[in-house]
Design a binder for these strands. Sequence first.
DNA 1: TCTTATTGTAACCATAAAGGTTACAATAAA
DNA 2: TTTATTGTAACCTTTATGGTTACAATAAGA
Lengths: 154, 154
Amino acid sequence: MQISSRFTIAVHIFACIDTFKDNYKITSDFLASSVNVNPVIIRKIVLQLRNAGLVETQRGSGGVTIAKALKDINFLDIYNAVECIEKGKLFHFHENPNCQCPVGRNIHNILDSKLEQVQNALENELKQITLAEIIKETQYYISEENKNKNNAIS
Amino acid sequence: MQISSRFTIAVHIFACIDTFKDNYKITSDFLASSVNVNPVIIRKIVLQLRNAGLVETQRGSGGVTIAKALKDINFLDIYNAVECIEKGKLFHFHENPNCQCPVGRNIHNILDSKLEQVQNALENELKQITLAEIIKETQYYISEENKNKNNAIS
DNA sequence: TCTTATTGTAACCATAAAGGTTACAATAAA
DNA sequence: TTTATTGTAACCTTTATGGTTACAATAAGA
């Protein structure tokens, strides 16, 4: 299993919106061009982000905007928005362990809390990383490029 | 995405082997009965565990045994054995971000270390949990059942 | 040696998810 | 009224999961 590319695309979308919001209208075509996927893929992901209250969209006139302060959106918010994870569980448990067997009828007692512990570790780490941090990194790398460009000119 | 049930089945298999090793020959049929899946499913998972050096099997005569000390097998070993994760990466990155776009050509710089940080958090937590702990829990829950049974008899 | 039990493995199958595409109604603004 | 855009339906392909039947290879016991 892998976390689907919807997650990295979603982060990419946020980076684009913030970087280009003053100079471009952020349409699904615009985003599709940067991410390099079909615009409908972008629209589906943007819809998931909108349903989670992370972005706002305008039908007809177009354009996507970020709905919250950058520091108030973290990777877990995005993960939960785009990753359709069954019952919120990271681990898929085999369905019908044999309750005639001492191990089979106790396997949930034995495992459930451990699996929860692992899932919490993942979620806590996702929670630590906010869009504020990502946008700062984005600005840094773009400004470094511009520095190099200016050096080449001068 | 979810971590596949191969993982919980694999842990279940280890719990069974240790619990019943003195009183039963641990065949794929025996394990299949406790887990409640087709014996071939068990054999495929046991093969993955064998390829990872975690168990030993005997063709013909049959039987599965644990290949290492219980404290030397952790959840990450089992996870890596049964979860065929592409290039070892937890996150699937969109393939071809547009290098004409400042965000597109920097998105890996921006994201890669963050994704690695999250994957490390997951793997470290998996590493903390050993089979020794799981077997201890298994014995505890089974002994509790036996206590209750004895109480009912007396 | 023959029989039996068991593993390893191939060859299928069904279902679901991911990722993608075309098409178009609904909408908003110029 | 026209145009641009979103939301959405209806498809498609590919891959992974989980499952099944069948059988050759193997090891041990009768």
